[in-house]
Structures are given as structure tokens and as C-alpha cells.
Design a binder for these strands. Structure first.
Length: 784
RNA sequence: GCGCGUGUGGCGGAACGGUAGACGCGCUGGAUUCAGGUUCCAGUGUCCGCAAGGGCGUGGAGGUUCGACUCCUCUCACGCGCACCA
């Protein structure tokens, strides 16, 4: 409550910690310039072994986007507006320049054009909206204000109106956009609302260009029956492309609308049609399988409605006509069934009225017309650059990290202000700056430190009359962003951490934590460490590669335990106390159950009944440990060793993969098998050692019966006895299990051995079959 | 809207492309017990069958392969993240 937050700490317009709503306020605050390292933070992700999921979260959060900045001069003034766009290829489609309300030029342009009152009114309306309102949807798109100013298009010199609208955000890009209503959804809504022209400058391309293409012009015609709302579709069957609309080539000199009417009548008989709408030209490349040629077509999509249902006889020959059937389908059915790229694009443009925001071929774009988006982008930006009014740039979604907090509990910001209000760093000899103690530290809209008499006096004593410390404290995430460095030198009173120790211990080999830190702690810590490394604070000034800027080499995300589908948390009051369970089952059983509940990185459901299984296992283990094994007849030692080796290999793998549920399952399986066979005392001892991490109390207690000097925890982890176990091959008949054989090592020997098995011989008698062999795996007998 | 992830018995969950459901919970029957609990034995995907045995089965539809939970394409459902990002 009552403090500022960083962007990362705001969830849906509310505080990530306390859930209270976030409002906007103008304040002077300190920032860490995380955006300066945005690129490095992005690259560094390639250097670490983190779950892909977490890397993606961070990549999205940083939100790198490449585009260009383009300057638009304002007519009759010295001003110039820089817009950021990812689509310079749509430059000829610009019909407005739109500024964020907070844009420095927004007010000035209004004032210049005698619209001061309008601006003030609009600005007030906008700032009255909270972030939550802004996030509510497209409602705010409709609010905008014309400044009265005209910008000059840098390539055509046309005049373009300059608007203010709050759908443009000051924090992103340059706080100004070029509105291209034909090719951007928001610009489109904006333009329609304010009756601005919409100019198409990109024609879509579908498919990919091929070699030796045959060129033709053609149409795709959608026919609607206005009485039913259904659309006419031609079903060609699964092999010939499924459902399509009526299509056909345009004859030389023929008008597309006439072509479409002719094709519709020929294929379906309907002849009384009303033309409704038409798409821009669509460039389509495809392989015409039936004709065996590659085609490039320039297609027009056309939309018709039936005037009436009158039909003429279908003109096609019977064999031609039988290739397809004519269907009337609901629009949503059509959307699902029409898979062809060209036809479904026409559907989107004409039926769903979607705008086209993809890449394509330029049209109505002066000398750049007929170029592809890619070519045009490069050439347009290059041309603008040589004219001094444009360049490629990169923008990030990441915001700088606001670290000032109006809270008591935090490290004081080590800044002191002179009587003129100019900030200065607190001198080294005055560090660390400690919190004053004569304050009421409840939050109250301003920092509690501002209320401290002692803090003020301290500053004046150290720096002189009229000086005062910054009264905010640092975000606690600042502390957690470098604690792993301090951990190495907790008793050092001279400096925050010891470079040599850092050099020795970092990066952290394995970092375990919850996913909730993905774009908070983990991002801040990476930033801080990289900053310290880059500036020689941790490794000296030697050059370093990107990987050396990463504090955490490997990351493991631990999953939450849920209760009835909800995360357990103190604030929700749905925490399960372990105490009664420990009392009844013991800590070993509880720990074991927690390991056994499921994979560590997956959210799991808490279900107490499961603890019984572990409890039973522990009782069996304990009872087994009461036997004097040296007096009992044991199983075959070679089999036993081989089994133990297998077990050991499995659990070693499971443990290093954090598959602790597998680790315990293997242990149970092993005990199940040998509970009745009796192990040699040596093997049992090794078995017990492998269980000691999961069940420290019980394994220690049982080990007292064995000849172990000292604690079981001082025993080395067992090593495989390295006896080679015989490899078995599975024998399958038509993929069904039919037994196992010992692997003789070679294909011919294995096949021979299989065919000598009596039961298999009998099954195969008189049948044709062939054998598939896979080394050390399987012999599959395929009988037809 | 964009991005990411997950779908396997009644449940938690196993399966280097090679006997799907290991291990555990629960459930059913039996033994022990005056009884309940505990413990022990047997069974437990589903359908047909007394059984032997067989059919079907890893969200759905295709494909690759001798063989697919696993690889590829499409699709559905759920979950998560970001979101007026130009």
C-alpha cells in the first residue's frame, strides 16, 4: 500500500503482493536502467540451462521488436515527430499521425492551433482513467483529439493530420505512431471512428513462389443466400482440396464480376446475383497437381448475394459435374472446412471483414509499388536515412526498473541532496547508510524516513546545513538481486562481497525456485550481476563473454503443492500443518510422501491418504532390518549384484534428474523383490545407504544393527559392482510379447535362437513370416 | 489477439521408438481379530469368456515405421504468461 511499484510488480493493474489497485501519480523516483542491458539480457538466455518455458517468459517480457523510426515534419513549424513502426513498408498507407496524450508535442501543437481548452479537457478525461480502465478493451480507441496540425509525409509530401489518442502509449517506442488503417486493426478502428481515409497499400501473398510458374488472373466468388445466411461451397472431396468457393480463370479482357457470375452459373446454376464487395488483388502461388504445373495467380475475391433461388441447368458434362457437389453451409462450418489458403483469406476479408495486416506486395506506393514488403522496407528506410529522416531501430517492451519505495523496511537510497535540491551520491566513508530508528514505519503515502528527525540531522551533520538524504528506500528486490554474492562473505564488514570468493564460487551451478520469479527476481538478479560484471565489480576488468554475465547456470522450477486445486498460501489460510502428520507417521514418512507425490517441477495435489504407502514401506524396511541377515540363506549373489546395479543406475539417474518419485518407486520395487529372498548383509547395507537421504532417521536407526562404524551418513555412496549383466532380447510376434532370450550378440545368431524356441516354432508352422532384429532390443516376427 | 505448456485407469503418476499403466493410493475378496483398525495373501484399464484366450485402449483425425504415449501434420480441451507494444 501507498508506495510506487515497478512494472514487473503490477499484475492486471494491481499490486502483485497485496492486490490493491495501482493508480498513476507524477513523482520523482530513482530507476535502474535495465533497458540499457536489454539486448545482453536477451543474449544471455542462450548461455544458461534454464527451462525453455522460463526463457520464453523473459524473452516476451523484454519484448524486443525491430523496426524503424521515421520523422514527420509539422507543417508551418519547426517541430518534427518521430514515430516508431515495425512496418515501414506501409508508409504510403499512412492517413494520420497519432500521439500519446503525454507526448511532449501533444500540448504544444494544440496550443499552437488554438485548441488549448480542448487539449486540457481531453487530457483530464484520459488521466481520470486508471490503468484498469485502459486495459478494459477497445472502448478507449474511440477517444481522440485532432490537434489541428498537419504533418508532412516524408516521401509524398502530402499533408497528414496529427491526432492525440490514448491508445498510443508514451512508454513504448517514441510515444507516436503512424496510423495505417488499412493494415493495422487498432488504426482501422481509430480511422473508422473518426472518419479518416483508409488506403490499401499491401496486397497479400499466399503460398510461396515456385519455379516455372504459369501466370493467370482468376476469381474466388463467395455467394450468400441472404434468406438463410448460408454460403455456397463446392465440395471437391478430400483428394481435390475439400471445400472451396467457386473459382475460375478470367478470360482475356473479361471483367472479374462477369467472370464470377459466369462461373457460378456454370458450376451451380444460380444466375441472379447481386455484387456486394471485392478484395484487393491477392497473389497466390500453388502447385496445380491435376495439371502438373506451378501457378502464380492474381486473384480477386468477390462477394455476391442471391437475388432469388432461380437456377439454370448446369452447363457441364456429366463426368465433369460428378467430380464435385454443391453445398450450402453455415458460415462457421465454412470457416472450419475451407482449408485452402487463398479461399480462406478471401473468406476472412469479405465475410469476417478482417483487415489484412500481413506482409505482401506493395501497391499505390509510388516507386516502391510491386516490391515485396521485405525489399520495400529495406529500400524505404535506406532512402529515408539518406534524406536524414529515418533509421532502423530496436524497441523493447521492458521498462526501466523503478527502485524507489515509500516504505520503511528497505535499504536507504544512498543519495544526498544539497540545499538547491541537486542529488549527490553519499560518500563512500558514510556507507552503509543505515535506517533511522525514530520513525513510525507504517505507510502513509510518503516515505516514513521523511518523518525522521534524526535522519535529517544526520545528513546535516555529515554534509552541512540544508542537506538531506533521499527519504525513499530501495525495492527489496534490489537486495535479493545480489544476496548470493553477499552469502560468500557474510562476516565481511569492509565490503559487500569478496571478489576472489565470487570468482571461485560463481556462477551458481543450480538454482531452485518457483516460477513466480520468472520476470521478477530472476530478471533483476541477472541484470544486477551482469551490471556488476560489466563494470568490473566482481571479476576485475578482464573482458568477459555473455555467459560470464549470468549468475545462475542451471535453473530448476519447483512446482507448488495444491490443496483442492488452489495454491496453498498463508494469506488464503489453506495451509496444511505438517505437525499432526509428523506426530502420527514421523518426519521420514512425511518427507518421503512429499518426494513421492509427483515430479518436483509439476504442480501436485496434496492428498494425505498417500502417506500410508510410504509409512507401510518404512515399516517393512524396519522389520526387514531386524533380521540378522548373516544367519539367513541368501539369494544368488550374482543375480543380487546385477539387480542392485540396475537399481543403483536407475536411482542415480532419477536423483540427478530430480525425479525423486522415481527414486522412491525404484527403492520400493527393490525391497518388494528381496523382502522374501533375503539380501546379503553387504547389499542391504548399500541399499540402506541409498535410502538415507530420503529417510535419515530410520536409516540411521536400522544401520545400528549393521556393522557400520560411525554414522550411515559418513558412508560413501555405493558404486556398481560392475558385473556385466546378461542382456535380454524381447521376442515379439506381430508386436505381441512372446518371451525373452539372452542376447547372443549377433543378428544371425539371435534370429536363429528365436526360431529354435519350440513354442515359437509351433506358432509359425506352415506360415510365412519375416524377422526384424534390433540390437540388444528386440526380434520381431511378422506373420501375415 | 500473440506466446508457452499439459492431456495415460477411480486417483497421484511410470514407460532410451520395442510386453502401456511400473510404484503408490483407493477399491474388491480372503486370512488373522469378539469387533473396528493394523498386518498378511490374491485381484483390480476396458469389453467378450467359467477358463484358456482374444478384441479395444495413452483427448481426437491423419501420417512416418516391422513396431508410436513417444516422431511429423492438423484438430479439440484445459492451464499459464503477456496484452491498445505500433
Amino acid at each position: 500500500d501507498q508506495t510506487v511499484l515497478a512494472n514487473e510488480q503490477v499484475i492486471n493493474g494491481c499490486c502483485e503482493r497485496c492486490g490493491s489497485q495501482v493508480t498513476k501519480k507524477e513523482l520523482e523516483q530513482w530507476y535502474f536502467l535495465t533497458t540499457k542491458l536489454a539486448d545482453e539480457l536477451l543474449e544471455g538466455l542462450e548461455q544458461v540451462e534454464w527451462p525453455e518455458h522460463v526463457k520464453t517468459l523473459q524473452r516476451n517480457w523484454i519484448g524486443k521488436s525491430q523496426g524503424a523510426e521515421i520523422g514527420f515534419k509539422i507543417d508551418d513549424s519547426r517541430f518534427k515527430i518521430e514515430v516508431f513502426t515495425t512496418r515501414p513498408d506501409t508508409l504510403f498507407g499512412v492517413t494520420a499521425i497519432v500521439l500519446a496524450p503525454e507526448h511532449p508535442l501533444a500540448k504544444q501543437l494544440c496550443v499552437q492551433n488554438g485548441k488549448t481548452a480542448e487539449f486540457e479537457a481531453y487530457n483530464q478525461a484520459v488521466s481520470a482513467k486508471t490503468n484498469v480502465d485502459r486495459a478494459q478493451g477497445k472502448e478507449t480507441l474511440k477517444t481522440a483529439l485532432f490537434t489541428g496540425a498537419q504533418a508532412i509525409h516524408p516521401l509524398t509530401n502530402e499533408k497528414i493530420p496529427v491526432w492525440i489518442a490514448d491508445y498510443v502509449l508514451m512508454e513504448y517506442g517514441t510515444g507516436a505512431v503512424m496510423a495505417v488503417p488499412a493494415h493495422d486493426e487498432r488504426d482501422n478502428i481509430f480511422a473508422k471512428t473518426h472518419k479518416l481515409p483508409i488506403k490499401t497499400v499491401i496486397e497479400p501473398i499466399t503460398g510461396t513462389p515456385l519455379e516455372n510458374e504459369e501466370f493467370r488472373r482468376s476469381i474466388v466468388a463467395i455467394v450468400e443466400n441472404p434468406k438463410t445466411g448460408k454460403l455456397l461451397s463446392i465440395n471437391w472431396g478430400p483428394k481435390l482440396g475439400g471445400n472451396l468457393f467457386v473459382g475460375g480463370g478470367i478470360d482475356e479482357g473479361e471483367d472479374p464480376v462477369e467472370t464470377a457470375k459466369r462461373e457460378i452459373a456454370e458450376e451451380t446454376g444460380y444466375k441472379n446475383l447481386k455484387f456486394i464487395a471485392k478484395t484487393e488483388t491477392i497473389h497466390h502461388h500453388y502447385i496445380a497437381h491435376s495439371k502438373g504445373v506451378n501457378r502464380y495467380i492474381q486473384a480477386s475475391g468477390l462477394y455476391f448475394q442471391l437475388i432469388d433461388e432461380e437456377k439454370q441447368p448446369v452447363a457441364l458434362e456429366a463426368d465433369e459435374r460428378n467430380k464435385f457437389s454443391v453445398e450450402w453451409l453455415e458460415k462457421d462450418v465454412v470457416e472450419r472446412k475451407v482449408a485452402d489458403q487463398l479461399h480462406s483469406l478471401v473468406f476472412k476479408r469479405l465475410v469476417k471483414n478482417e483487415i489484412f495486416s500481413g506482409y505482401g506486395v506493395l501497391v499505390d506506393s509510388g516507386e516502391y509499388s510491386t516490391e515485396s514488403s521485405q525489399e520495400a522496407t529495406d529500400r524505404i528506410v535506406a532512402d529515408l536515412e539518406s534524406a536524414g529522416t529515418g533509421k532502423f531501430t530496436t524497441t523493447y517492451r521492458l521498462r526501466d526498473w523503478l527502485v524507489s519505495r515509500q516504505r520503511y523496511w528497505g535499504a536507504p537510497i544512498p543519495v544526498v541532496y544539497d540545499p538547491q535540491g541537486q542529488p549527490h551520491p553519499v560518500k563512500d566513508e558514510h556507507l552503509p547508510l543505515e535506517l533511522p530508528e525514530d520513525v513510525n514505519f507504517l505507510p502513509g503515502g510518503e516515505s516514513p524516513l521523511a518523518r525522521s528527525k534524526e535522519y535529517k540531522e544526520r545528513a546535516e551533520k555529515l554534509y552541512g546545513q540544508g542537506w538531506h538524504f533521499d527519504t525513499d528506500t530501495l525495492d527489496t528486490f534490489v537486495d535479493s538481486s545480489w544476496y548470493y554474492l553477499r552469502y560468500l562473505s557474510v562476516n565481511d564488514t569492509e565490503k559487500p562481497f569478496d571478489k576472489d570468493l565470487v570468482k571461485k564460487w560463481l556462477p551458481v551451478d543450480l538454482y531452485i525456485g518457483g516460477i513466480e520469479h520468472a520476470t521478477l527476481h530472476l530478471l533483476y538478479a541477472r541484470f544486477m550481476y551482469r551490471f556488476l560484471v560489466q563494470n568490473g565489480y566482481v571479476k576485475g576488468a578482464e573482458p568477459f563473454d555473455s555467459a560470464q554475465g549470468e549468475p545462475f547456470k542451471k535453473l530448476f522450477n519447483i512446482g507448488m503443492i495444491n490443496l483442492h486445486g488452489a495454491k496453498m498460501s498463508k494469506s488464503k489460510g489453506n495451509v496444511v500443518s505438517p505437525d499432526p502428520l509428523i506426530e502420527h507417521y514421523g518426519t521420514d514418512a512425511l518427507r518421503g510422501y512429499e518426494l513421492f507425490i509427483g515430479p518436483l517441477d509439476i504442480e501436485s495435489e496434496w492428498n494425505v491418504r498417500g502417506i500410508n504407502g510410504i509409512h507401510r514401506f518404512l515399516i517393512r524396511l524396519y522389520n526387514y532390518g531386524q533380521h540378522d541377515l548373516s544367519l539367513l540363506e541368501q539369494a544368488d549373489i550374482e543375480d543380487e549384484n546385477a539387480d542392485f546395479d540396475t537399481y543403483l543406475t536407475n536411482i542415480n539417474e532419477a536423483i540427478s534428474d530430480f525425479r525423486l518419485n522415481r527414486y522412491l518407486a525404484q527403492a520400493m520395487e527393490f525391497l518388494n523383490k528381496y523382502e522374501k529372498l533375503f539380501l546379503s548383509p553387504e547389499t542391504f547395507k548399500k541399499f540402506l545407504i541409498t535410502l538415507s537421504p530420503a529417510f535419515p532417521y530410520l536409516s540411521e536407526e536400522i544401520s545400528e544393527k549393521l556393522n557400520i562404524t560411525g554414522s550411515i551418513f559418513e558412508q560413501p555412496w555405493p558404486k556398481p559392482t560392475a558385473l556385466t549383466k546378461t542382456v535380454e532380447i524381447t521376442v515379439l510376434i506381430n508386436q505381441k510379447f512372446s518371451g525373452k532370450i539372452t542376447d547372443p550378440g549377433s543378428e544371425t545368431a539371435a534370429k536363429k535362437a528365436v526360431l529354435e524356441i519350440i513354442e515359437i516354432k509351433n506358432k509359425l508352422a506352415g506360415k510365412k513370416f519375416k524377422l526384424v532384429y534390433k540390437k540388444a532390443k528386440v526380434v520381431n516376427i511378422i506373420v501375415n
